[in-house]
């Protein structure tokens, strides 16, 4: 009989994923960039050199000048301060969307994966929901419910749910065929217990990965909504709103779009890279981007 290795701690795959040294240098840089962005935006109130809403008609559309490292916009507001503050709402909306859509999708996906009768109906509804282009659906929802933060979160969340449902359902369907689940049935374990103890943990790894992708795509969608004039009210500085306002002055001062665009892109890029790394780590079989 071959020798048995020593016991190791619980939650093998998750622990393995959390051990950062296993990440490549790309993901380490991504983690660092994301950390810097998050810290800067969280501390924006204290770091920002100016109030992002204070206008200064005497210093409109100025290049980098004393006290305004990135220059000023068409109302003479400090671009650097606005970009810093603008990240706050983008991140909040992104995180809220990711959490809410994953939780709702998890529940619906579980039901679809486990109850055959509900499955057909739920999945047709998800098909229909996925057929509606997410940006247009979000636009309509915001147009109807008004430009509040809550309605923007709802508008971005709803189109993301079908993807989570499909993922969870697929994992549950695959897992319930596993012999260890059949063995649990033979051991007299009740269905709800099998669902919670055997099947839900299987969805954890793919959901972490999917959650990061949703986070990235939600931040992106928020920016697009704001850019199209269907986001949170235009007085609030978000990355999308800053860029939307910059459109008019793009030829004179492209920085109005490029700086917030750069911040936004770096943020999404690092989240996507971390998502890829997490996917490779947690489950090598999950090679394809779901949805």
């Amino acid at each position: 009989m071959s020798p048995i290795p020593p016991p190791t701690s619980a939650m093998q795959p998750v622990l393995r994923a959390l051990r950062l040294p296993q990440f490549g240098w790309g993901s380490k840089i991504a983690a660092l960039v994301l950390a810097v962005i998050v810290v800067l935006t969280l501390l924006a109130q204290w770091i920002a050199p100016h109030d992002p809403l204070t206008m200064n008609p005497l210093a409109r559309l100025k290049g980098p000048i004393e006290g305004h490292p990135l220059g000023t916009d068409n109302f003479g507001r400090d671009i650097f301060s606005r970009v810093l503050i603008g990240g706050q709402l983008s991140l909040i909306i992104g995180i809220a969307t990711a959490v809410v859509s994953v939780l709702i999708g998890l529940v619906i996906g579980m039901v679809a994966g486990f109850f055959r009768t509900a499955d057909a109906i739920i999945m047709r509804m998800m098909d229909a929901l996925m057929a509606i282009p997410s940006i247009l659906l979000a636009i309509a929802l915001v147009a109807l419910n008004g430009p509040s933060v809550g309605s923007v979160i709802a508008a971005i969340t709803i189109p993301e749910i079908p993807r989570v449902v499909r993922l969870v359902r697929a994992v549950v369907l695959a897992a319930r065929e596993e012999p260890y689940v059949e063995a649990a049935i033979a051991l007299g374990t009740s269905m709800p217990k099998i669902l919670v103890r055997h099947l839900v943990p299987n969805t954890l790894a793919p959901l972490i990965v999917q959650g990061t992708y949703i986070l990235a795509s939600a931040i992106l969608t928020e920016a697009i909504l704001s850019f199209l004039g269907a986001g949170v009210s235009t007085e609030t500085p978000t990355w999308g709103n800053i860029m939307a306002e910059g459109r008019m002055f793009f030829r004179i001062k492209p920085e109005l779009i490029l700086y917030p665009g750069l911040a936004l892109s770096l943020c999404i890029l690092s989240i996507n890279l971390l998502g890829d790394a997490a996917r490779d780590m947690l489950d090598p079989r999950l090679k394809k981007r779901a949805g």
């Binding site: 697009i224 850019f227 860029m243 492209p254 779009i257 665009g261 892109s265 890029l269």
Partner: peptide, 28 residues
């Protein structure tokens, strides 16, 4: 991964900036 991360309108303006305004290859 860049394609997924940079918003499409930022890319658009970037292209206009480079290919139309700076290089003049295309109308704005």
């Amino acid at each position: 991964v860049l394609g997924f991360s940079v918003p499409v309108f930022v890319i658009g303006y970037l292209f206009i900036l480079i290919f139309s305004l700076k290089l003049g290859w295309f109308p704005v």
